[in-house]
Design a binder for these strands. Structure first.
Lengths: 235, 235
DNA sequence: GCGCACTACGTACGGTGTACGTAACTAGGA
DNA sequence: TCCTAGTTACGTACACCGTACGTAGTGCGC
């Protein structure tokens, strides 16, 4: 009669080992690792309670002893990959430190393309998230500002990185689980876009397309967005 | 044998009325309106092909004559609410114009809380999106910059608004379809957070929480984020 | 040592997207 | 003008999904 709670619950507040029953056969780390592996390999939609349970080697409903709701599984996953941050000693140059962290986040999201899509549903106060936040705050020690402002800085940087990489991934990954190639999809959409723009109804968009026809340097765009964000907090 | 295409397809490139068969009983506008109404009332998860079909008054599979894939239904929805923008004449003050548009976006997303969650899966070149983009470009005519830079400005502003409102909504809306109240949920999470912070492992976070214990002025935070973003493009 | 809280598991329910087959209908080409 | 090909409309069916619930076995706290 245990299972799902009738009251709200943060999974991190629930102890891994409950006092009473037989000792659990798996750890949260095991479960999170399997879920991450599935998501990396087959996309976030392949992360079902059944697949994860099969992956760790137990029956579907047994997984609910460890993870009361699927949302909590997502929380475990995000926390697990958050452990990949290399939180090295702050250098004293807060801009450089934050830039480095932003690049780490971008690389992390490229390794785990499902992360941006999980950022909204996940509340974000997991153990590793707290470690990350505290580290950011430490990097920002040299910055003369209120704590509230520093929080806004961290949120802004993470927001920029998340939206930017989400776009990168959405463009690259749209083809996953589709029966045609990314080039086909891209070609069709660009074709439609050009057909619309060339109607003359959108003269400025047409001019914009004419301006740089070649492929854009995504890295440079990312760097400029970051720089501008940090500039907003630099005095 | 019509139905789903074997090749990629942009729904906007497909004509509403095909030459041959009987005239369609519904328009895309009807379908989008019903889907938007369902999403507004019961959340995006309630937007299923069955519900929408029932809403417009046809069998489930008939809907696939109008909307080949569910993703396309989302595209219709986002385009439909994009028509709500009031694209009034540019004033000549590009900062004021962009601020006004950003506020419109925020209000729009509050009216339709499912929009932020659909921004990533949707490609974003629907008719109304193109109108919106062209209008932004017109507002930016007074700004002396390359078209590419103006595109980055628009993307940045929309990114800030989207992530910001997504957070607002995620916090407010997390309780939807949960058997407990938002206050309970919030209380439990804050309680856990405080218990962690008060362990002493996160001294700077503790200081940040001590700094402003009262509720934060979300509108002011939003305004500051916008201002900083525009500052980055102002010379 | 007793009892209770926990683990483990199978079954079942209501929901989802959508492939596929069939019948009715209408416009274009002969 | 008629024929036919392509479209609309609809029902059935399949493979999934999250998870409520009941049952059996296990081991710690009292």
């Amino acid at each position: 009669m245990a299972g799902r709670p009738a009251e709200p619950e943060v999974i991190w507040a629930r102890p891994e080992r409950a006092g009473r029953g037989p000792r659990p056969a798996f750890s949260r780390a095991d479960i999170a690792a399997v879920a991450v592996r599935i998501a990396d390999a087959d996309g976030i939609d392949a992360v079902s309670m059944r697949h994860v349970a099969a992956g760790i080697g137990c029956a579907t409903m047994s997984l609910y002893n460890y993870v009361p709701r699927k949302e909590d599984l997502y929380e475990l996953m995000v926390d697990a990959v958050s452990a990949e941050y290399e939180l090295s000693e702050p250098t004293g140059d807060w801009r450089a430190d934050m830039l480095g962290l932003a690049h780490q986040t971008r690389a992390l999201m490229h390794r785990h393309p499902w992360v941006p899509g999980l950022m909204s549903p996940v509340y974000g106060f997991s153990p590793n998230a707290l470690r990350y936040l505290e580290h950011c705050m430490t990097c920002l020690d040299p910055l003369d500002a209120r704590y509230g402002t520093k929080m806004e800085l961290i949120a802004s940087v993470n927001g920029v990185v998340t939206t930017y990489v989400a776009n990168e991934i959405a463009t690259a990954e749209r083809t996953r689980s589709l029966p045609w190639s990314a080039e086909q999809e891209h070609g069709v959409r660009i074709g439609y876009l050009l057909s619309q723009v060339s109607t003359g109804r959108y003269p400025r968009l047409a001019a914009a397309f004419a301006e740089d026809s070649g492929p854009i340097d995504l890295d440079a765009v990312f760097e400029r967005a970051l720089t501008r964000t940090l500039d907003g907090f630099d005095k």
